[in-house]
Design a protein around this nucleic acid. Structure first.
Lengths: 142, 142
DNA sequence: GGAATTAACTTTCACGGTGAAAGGAAACGG
DNA sequence: CCGTTTCCTTTCACCGTGAAAGTTAATTCC
């Protein structure tokens, strides 16, 4: 069992860090009634267990000019195209996220771009590997 | 112009922190040829500008039992249902992300759940507000 | 029952990252 | 040529952090 060693205190620490990963262990400790050092030990345990994979930023791509935010459902043109599509997706930094999915299409993908022109150019290249259905994000609700 | 005050050094710092937000300013400074304090000042500037919104974790929901990862395309049943759907989506902690989109459907949404049974229960409640098309993530490619 | 063991916590301590403050260099404008 | 602004470095004091050692409680074994 994977969860055997993860209790509710660990979960509260996790939630706390998800909200703000810069909170000090001491501050978190006050919420869960532990010393900062004990919190530190639990955080290390969560890292070792692979629950916490790393630390990163919540940020706003819009503010550096990445104003286009698109979701793509990908359909393969042939059974042999998977590898080339995956290689393409991994190599392009516009591609923020890719998942193999069941249901609608074969893959689901998120991209961020600077403009409609860039989107157009990107889609043209994507077409060499796969067909797609495009949704543009108009507003982030949550 | 928003970008006027953001230069390539800022972008390198941003990339650096996106990879690992725990890197010290001193360490980043060595990469961009600045002192740790100068890096700190730029990071603060990025925060004030709203580029950096906060600090959070990269983590693995799988490891705490959230094994079901689904994407949903949402279709409204009527023009008046939007508010109730948005309220529903915001209130449910299973819902990790929601966007208003153009193209296929009205909204796009990501949920994480513990099991097929939970997914079933969730979808039943969702149906009170909207129709949907479901894709399950089988594997994270990127 | 009592001794040994283990797990998880607290206390203490030294190191180093951080932000504030002050000083310096380069660019700009009258 | 001088004042101003901007961005940097240096210095310094504070505090968060992890390591180590000590404490407590629960478990196990004879």
């Amino acid at each position: 069992m994977i969860n055997q060693s993860i209790d509710e205190v660990d979960l509260r620490i996790l939630e706390c860090l998800l909200e703000d990963a810069q909170r000090s262990h001491k501050e978190i400790g006050q919420l869960v009634h532990l010393t900062g050092q004990a919190v530190g030990a639990r955080v290390r345990k969560l890292q070792d267990a692979g629950v916490i994979e790393g630390y990163t930023l919540r940020w706003n791509p819009d503010k550096i000019g990445l104003t286009v935010h698109a979701f793509l459902i990908i359909f393969m043109k042939s059974n042999t195209a998977h590898q080339s599509f995956i290689a393409f997706a991994k190599s392009r930094e516009e591609v923020a996220e890719v998942h193999r999915v069941s249901g609608e299409g074969c893959y689901w993908m998120r991209v961020r771009l600077r403009s409609g022109a860039e989107l157009n150019a990107f889609l043209e290249q994507l077409l060499q590997h796969a067909n797609y259905r495009l949704s543009l994000s108009i507003e982030t609700i949550k």
